[in-house]
Simulated scan of single mutants.
Amino acid sequence: MLNSIRSKQIITIGAIVLLIGFLFTRDIKGLVKPKEDKASAPAAGQMTTDQPALINLAEVSATAKNTINASLAAEINLLENDFNAAAENDKTAFAKQLAQKWDDLEQTVPSALYLEIIASKEQNLNNWLVTGDKFMKAFDNTRDSILQPALLQKANVAYTNAMRIDSTSSDAKTGLGITIVDGMGMPMQGIAMLMDVVKKDPKNLKANMSLGTFAIKSGQFDKAIVRFTDIIAIKPSPDAYFYLATAYENMGKTTEAIDAYKNSKKLAANATLSKFIDDKVIELQRKK
């Protein structure tokens, strides 16, 4: 599901977007659902693979073009016209240009849909992994509760296709496991897949991060603390510190939570996150 930083002071834009998106679309205090909605309960908006995900590319594109300037929208219109007019065998080249153009504009949904077209025409492991990753990024970024399940299902299908090509791929297995944990099946199925990845590759950050965030959402804060402490030992990141702080806070370990929040702020160097953490630290200090 979050991107790692390149250095101690600089984080990629993608990681910040994912982290901020997570903060403002979930319950900040605990990042935990009520007790009756534990690991064994289906996720909200859960879909199954026999329910085809329908996302209208033309509608998505039109919506995205309303958020960019007119000259860029005109460039995309020309590419779309070329794509639509091209013979079936020639569509891939235009799809690649459109996927890249939308990605450059940080419009993940249309970019993912064009990547899906590419992967369906040039079926290989990398194409399906890239497609799955882009759908997951779109899923994490969107606050549209109707669109989210469809994006998650498309990611699930992409990773499933990747697994069919190479069942030993840890990236494919991790991605598939994450989609299951997030709603494409019973969470424990996905947890088992992620645990298998970590067993074979203990330093797999993506799998470890997903296991850690699931531990938080299911109220297993002690396990989350261990998981995120291990992640930070491998590669410190603002999101890992933030989740560690959240786990500490829910365990009543205020001093440790404050330290972890401050480390998250230091690494992220993002105004929005900094303001949130400053307010959080003040709140926690009052409780000491």
Rank of each mutant, 00 (worst) to 15 (best):
V60R: 15
K38L: 08
D201V: 14
I146V: 12
F276L: 02
A70W: 01
K266D: 05
L147T: 07
P238C: 01
G183W: 07
A257K: 01
A215I: 11
L31S: 00
A233F: 01
G45P: 07
A41F: 11
S7H: 07
M47R: 14
D239S: 15
G175I: 07
N204D: 11
L54I: 15
I68E: 02
N141S: 10
G190K: 07
Q100W: 03
T229Y: 01
N127R: 13
K253H: 13
L113K: 12
S169E: 03
W128E: 09
A41E: 07
S237D: 14
Q46N: 08
A85Q: 10
D90C: 01
N270Q: 09
K35S: 09
V17T: 05
I178Q: 02
G132R: 11
I16R: 06
V226Y: 09
N89L: 11
S7Q: 10
A215H: 05
L125R: 12
T272N: 00
G30C: 06
S170E: 10
G212V: 11
N161P: 08
L105K: 04
M195I: 01
D27H: 08
L244N: 09
D230M: 06
K288R: 13
P202Y: 05
I11Q: 11
S264N: 02
I191V: 14
A58Q: 14
G45A: 02
E283D: 14
M251P: 06
